[in-house]
């Protein structure tokens, strides 16, 4: 089936349906099995350079005397269990540089937080365009982030450069709705909630119970499928967290917000097996574009993925 469609796409450039079919859902995502494929393995290298922080009131503060650079090498992959149901996961290896006033600059390498996920395709878009059918793709998502990276409270170096993870579990449940307005243009909305259980922090002065706030995520994407080889997308993401609590007492104004804008371009080196994706992400450079974020700054990434049919 897929080979026939590919052949169609290769033989007639107008066979946009086939193009979309093989570029459709999973576009711009890492380690997620794409449409018409059975499995995927990928590796991604990203670099983030912090430029600013946002305080509680949402005022953007350029970083003074602080340098925070993160290089993340992520390997991941996924496989279909049934045609509609897949499992996937990713393992980040992080290299972090921190330079602060009065401290020796420090570079640390370590495992970040491993993510495992599953998704179920509940509704299928015929990808014939909105004039033919209103049905979108609907994916139901569940993700768990494991605290495999060193937790903030477990740091052993003065700069905290060895803090590789969030310190706790996060269970994310979400829905991803993708609609091909035409066979070449799609809009994607991904909404999810993240649940973060409380955990005990063992500190020199005794145990403290810390409950991070719950999370809401929203990801909007416009996807353009140019051909079997080229596709790209524009992204806007938001992540909001509620107030944390310490020993059962809410920490006032401890919630946070982070929004980012991004763009990606994917090129299929060998259709439909090998593809390479370049992406950039930017944080707002205006006040109130985020709140309570210690380090924000642009990210550039390059991803290579191999799929199996």
């Amino acid at each position: 089936m897929i080979r026939a469609l590919l052949l169609m796409g290769l033989l007639s450039p107008g066979a946009a349906w086939a193009q979309a079919c093989c570029t459709g859902t999973g576009a711009g995502e890492f380690g997620v099995v794409g449409r018409c494929r059975q499995a995927v393995l990928g590796a991604s290298l990203s670099y983030t350079h912090a430029l600013a922080s946002f305080d509680k009131a949402g005022e953007r503060q350029p970083l003074e005397d602080a340098i925070a650079d993160d290089v993340v090498w992520t390997v991941g992959g996924g496989a279909r269990i049934t045609p509609a149901w897949q499992i996937h996961g990713s393992v980040p290896l992080r290299l972090q540089y921190r330079g602060f006033t009065g401290l020796d600059a420090d570079t640390q390498v370590g495992l970040g937080d491993v993510t495992l996920g599953t998704r179920y395709l509940a509704v299928t878009d015929p990808m014939t365009g909105i004039s033919q059918s209103l049905l979108p793709f609907v994916d139901l998502l569940a993700l768990v982030r494991l605290p495999t990276g060193r937790a903030p409270e477990a740091t052993e170096v003065p700069t905290g450069a060895d803090v590789m993870g969030a310190g706790g579990y996060e269970l994310t449940l979400g829905v991803r709705v993708s609609k091909f307005i035409t066979p070449n243009h799609a809009l994607v909305v991904n909404g999810s909630v993240g649940l973060r259980p409380a955990r005990d922090l063992d500190l020199p002065g005794g145990t403290r119970r810390f409950a991070p706030g719950q999370v809401g995520n929203l990801h909007l994407m416009y996807l353009y499928v140019h051909s079997l080889w080229w596709s790209g997308g524009l992204h806007a993401t938001g992540r909001w967290t509620g107030d944390a609590a310490e020993d059962g007492v809410t920490v006032p104004d401890s919630g946070s917000a982070r929004t980012r804008l991004g763009a990606h371009v994917t090129y299929a080196l060998q259709v439909p097996y090998w593809e390479i994706t370049g992406a950039v992400w930017l944080d707002p450079w205006w006040d109130h574009g985020a709140a309570n974020q210690p380090f924000v700054g642009p990210t550039a990434s390059l991803t290579l993925q191999r799929s199996w049919l």
Partner: peptide, 8 residues
């Protein structure tokens, strides 16, 4: 307090 950590 927002993040539940101190410094080393």
């Amino acid at each position: 307090p927002d993040h539940g950590h101190g410094s080393s």
